[in-house]
Write a protein that binds this DNA or RNA. Structure first.
Length: 370
DNA sequence: ATGTAC
């Protein structure tokens, strides 16, 4: 389909590179998925990270270099990523109960005029603003965090930050669904479907980054603070790299040498100073990685009232707002691997170092009951 | 992942 890949795609590196140590638990099925995708037509190389876990169309926590486009290796949430912002709010001025009440603004849709204006300023005029500024479901969140250690010039111990994990909402899902029937062997970049996908994909990537910024702006406004962007690293996207098409699925593309590494809502998060090279397909872990899938979590959590109430507090004394009972269970801290293990592996392979450590104070999922 | 599909 495409031209054979040369350079970094050739024998210089292993076809399947794994950047995790034996100390890190990896579900066997995700390694099977990794090997399976590595055998698809036109796949030159794959790199897997310590947050690897099984996904619907292939493993999550991996990057794939191909001579063609495979939309299923990006998935429906095109452009999804993690963005970190510093808040101009002293820790002593954050009152959790009041913040919980005010952050319910995140559940409301943005006024249509404001959404349109933001889209126009981001060169996305004419694209639907439905869902812009809202978090969505699944593993997405907007979290107030406190810096507990920092070597980064933009952060100091005691600073408050927002970590936003969200994507392109219905926009990416719609693009994915429309092209779903035509994937099997991927698209050549110069085919009509390939060109269509790339154009729609690129706008969804920009829409998703704008969405994270709008979520952070709305949260900062609710908290009465100003916002300073630290970095925004997408982890579901395809870009030109390494002489081919680099697909990332739950694999972070660092921005200017930095990327957030999100722990669960009951764990630390890190700001990584990152220099992953060709061997790691220029990518990093995006988070802790799931240990148990959603359905398994329903069997693992005792669902009496006091147990569920306890799940709205984290080990740092912080609070979780998630009125959707199923989501509260499915996204429990115990559903994820320890993020420190993931960071240690990335450091062991020289892909990144921890430049800041952050603890969650308030995780906003949804205030709406289901 | 999803203004969630029947």
């Amino acid at each position: 389909m495409g031209t054979p890949l040369s350079g970094v795609a050739a024998e210089q590196y292993p076809r399947v590179a794994r950047f995790y140590t034996p100390e890190t638990w990896i579900e066997g099925r995700s390694e099977d998925q990794l090997d399976h995708v590595a055998g698809w037509p036109g796949i030159a190389r794959v790199a897997a990270f310590p947050d690897l876990h099984p996904g619907r169309h292939g493993p999550v926590g991996a990057a794939f270099l191909a001579d063609r486009l495979y939309p299923q290796l990006v998935g429906p949430d095109i452009g999804c990523g993690m963005a970190l912002f510093r808040l101009s709010l002293p820790r002593r001025r954050l009152k959790l109960d009041k913040a919980v009440r005010r952050l319910s603004a995140l559940d409301e849709p943005m006024p249509a005029g404001a959404a349109e204006e933001a889209l126009g300023a981001a060169d996305l005029a004419g694209i639907s603003g439905t869902g812009l500024g809202t978090i969505g479901g699944g593993n997405h969140f907007c979290e107030v965090q406190e810096v507990v250690a920092a070597e980064d010039a933009d952060l100091a111990t005691g600073d408050l930050c927002l970590l936003v994990h969200s994507g392109s909402r219905a926009l990416g899902a719609g693009i994915f669904a429309r092209l779903a029937a035509r994937w099997a062997e991927g698209f050549a970049e110069d085919s009509p479907a390939g060109r269509d996908y790339l154009e729609l994909h690129d706008s969804a990537v920009r829409w998703a980054a704008l969405n994270r910024r709008m979520i952070a702006l709305r949260a900062a406004e609710a908290l009465g603070a100003d916002l300073e962007p630290i970095c925004d690293a997408p982890h579901n996207l395809v870009t030109r790299a390494g002489g081919g098409w680099l697909h990332r699925k739950g694999a972070a593309a660092p921005e200017a040498g930095r990327a957030p590494l999100a722990g669960s809502r009951d764990d630390l998060s890190f700001l990584l100073a990152a220099a992953p090279g060709a061997e790691a397909l220029w990518s990093l872990s995006h988070g802790a990685g799931r240990r148990y899938d959603r359905s398994a979590m329903h069997g693992r959590i005792r669902k009496h009232r006091s147990g569920l109430d306890a799940m709205t507090r984290n080990r740092f004394g912080g609070q979780i707002v998630c009125a959707d009972r199923d989501l509260l269970i499915e996204e429990a801290g115990s559903a994820y691997k320890p993020v420190t293990r993931v960071a240690e592996d990335l450091e062991a392979f020289g892909l990144a170092r921890r430049a800041a450590t952050l603890a969650p104070l308030l995780t906003w999922k949804t205030g709406a009951r289901r």
